[in-house]
Amino acid sequence: MKRILVIDDAATVRMYHKSILQSEGYEVEESINGIEAIEKALQNPFDIYIVDINMPKLDGYGFLKELRELDIPQAPAIMVSTESDEMDKKKAFVCGANYYLIKPVKPEQLTAVVKLLIGEVRQ
């Protein structure tokens, strides 16, 4: 089963994303900040990462940079934020995101993107 990591400091958002993705049949895990997410990814890499920007300790940008330096299979990452600013998007892409979604994300939007991005992640 494909595994997805949802990283967000807001429990409501994590639950929301998780319930959408679970209903599509994916296995979903959660992290409340970037540090915790890095630990999880190191233990057992995921097939897609869904990352919030604004988080305490290590934020979304920091997480992505760290993730992309790890020696694990590099799965696509989706940045999720309330900011629709071009600069924020650009920053996300520089840091290693592969797609950008604006909150609040609609269920069909999230599932459509995840369905397209999920695939064989090679080392």
Partner: peptide, 19 residues
Amino acid sequence: DVEWFQGRLKAVANTLSAC
């Protein structure tokens, strides 16, 4: 010229492969 360049490339390649 970023340290995470290699990881970023791999992620792009995986994304493109999925597409």
